[in-house]
């Protein structure tokens, strides 16, 4: 059974419809017990990082998720999920889950710091994802043509510190890490559930092969 973590962060319905379409058995739950007993965990969401962290803490989810990652349960973080897995986020700013070293950074601040103009924030729409084929989790993209586009909508982006976890990158003003993974913990900034056939294939790969 897949547990989709419910922490009041935006549109879980689209993740549900994608899982239904793929014939997966899942439950949407805020309950730490359902995280502890899950075969796989989806950690999706859109929203504001500090608010998301507050809800997670209130529901006792950080500890359950940390333990699930430790015992080897495959976890896929999506969008804000990919950001708050890290140590901290500039949104808030807030301390985050600390499951991977790094922080979520703000496009606007980086653009300003590097003199990049003319790019809108949020980064919204379809953008190409370049996969690091030598990454141990490259199988997440199996069957998906090289440089396929996925749907993004975000103002902050994850920056995991250890370059060896970088699974994919995408260009928006500069290359940023659009997917990363360490063993059973995987994360993508884009929305596979909203990325058409390529996104459905990625979710299917996660469900069946991880």
């Amino acid at each position: 059974m897949i547990t989709v973590i419910d922490y009041d962060a935006g549109n879980l319905r689209s993740v549900e419809t994608a899982l239904e379409h793929l014939g997966a058995s899942y439950r949407v739950s805020p309950d730490p017990a359902d995280i502890a007993t899950a075969d796989k965990i989806l950690f999706p969401g859109v929203g504001e990082a500090a608010h998301a962290m507050a809800v997670l803490r209130k529901r006792g989810i950080p500890q359950a998720l940390t333990e699930a990652v430790k015992k080897g349960t495959p976890v896929l973080g999506i969008c804000i999920g990919s950001q708050i897995i890290l140590d901290a986020s500039d949104e808030g700013p807030t301390e985050c889950l600390g499951l991977e070293a790094g922080r979520a950074k703000y496009f606007s601040s980086e653009f300003q710091a590097h003199g990049i103009t003319g790019l809108k924030v949020p980064h919204m729409g379809w953008n190409q994802v370049r996969v690091n084929e030598s990454h141990p989790s490259a199988g997440l993209f199996r069957g998906i043509p090289e440089n396929s586009s996925f749907y993004f909508v975000h103002s902050y982006y994850p920056e995991p510190r250890d370059a060896s976890v970088h699974l994919a990158e995408t260009e928006y003003g500069f290359p940023f890490v659009s997917a990363y993974g360490r063993e059973n913990l995987i994360a993508c900034q884009f929305h596979p559930e909203k990325s058409g056939p390529a996104g459905l294939r990625l979710l299917d790969n996660f469900i069946r092969n991880f």
Partner: peptide
């Protein structure tokens, strides 16, 4: 619609 299409 939400059940049929997987784009925003």
């Amino acid at each position: 619609v939400a059940r049929e299409i997987f784009i925003p």
